[in-house]
């Protein structure tokens, strides 16, 4: 990882955008990095598009708002269309290709198409497309160590929902295998 990684995760409300961001942020915290997590909030949360800025850095973080992401995770078409031109040159775009039917035409970014929703449904991991995409992001960027990612995940799942740990881990691994 470079000094700072700016990540923007975007999709519909209910796809687990904020949770995915939180897992990344907590993993960064465990890894000893400076981190920030900033959600979009307000009416757009209610059924509309939702996004979340995560900054993981070796230095103190200035603006927590990610305007030009190094990595964009897009879980729906409006989000991809809205943000794909904002990604920095040389950046990464990870698209849930089972919900988004457009291709990125830019040649200065690396694009990964992962049919995350279909993979989740077929793998008995319904609702965990978000974690599949985080798994892919982890594989391509190595933004934290595997150990930090595992520990970060544990921090985000309350004891009451401990049965969710295994499925989330599976989803991360499935994403990393893509």
């Amino acid at each position: 990882m470079d000094k700072t990684m700016n990540v923007l995760l975007a999709g519909f409300g209910g796809q687990g955008i904020l949770f995915a961001g939180k897992v990344m942020a907590y993993s960064g915290l465990v890894d000893g990095a400076e981190i920030s997590w900033l959600p979009s909030y307000g009416p757009e949360m209610r059924g509309g598009t939702c996004n979340c800025s995560v900054v993981i850095s070796k230095d103190a973080i200035g603006s927590p708002l990610v305007v030009n992401p190094d990595v964009l995770v897009a879980m729906n078409k409006p989000s991809l269309l809205k943000f794909m031109d904002k990604v920095v040159s040389g950046g990464i775009i990870i698209v849930d290709s089972s919900t988004v039917d457009v291709k990125v035409e830019r040649t200065d970014v690396t694009v990964y198409y992962v049919p995350a929703t279909v993979l989740a449904d077929e793998g008995g991991l319904k609702g965990l497309a978000n974690m599949i995409l985080v798994g892919k992001l982890f594989k391509e960027t190595g933004f934290v160590s595997q150990d930090s990612l595992d520990k970060g995940l544990l921090k985000c799942i309350p004891p009451k929902k401990a049965e969710m740990i295994e499925s989330n881990k599976k989803a991360l691994a499935l994403g990393a295998a893509q």
Partner: peptide, 10 residues
């Protein structure tokens, strides 16, 4: 402000 209120940091 809304940014500091809504954001998470360690």
């Amino acid at each position: 402000d809304g940014m500091l209120g809504q954001m998470m940091e360690p």
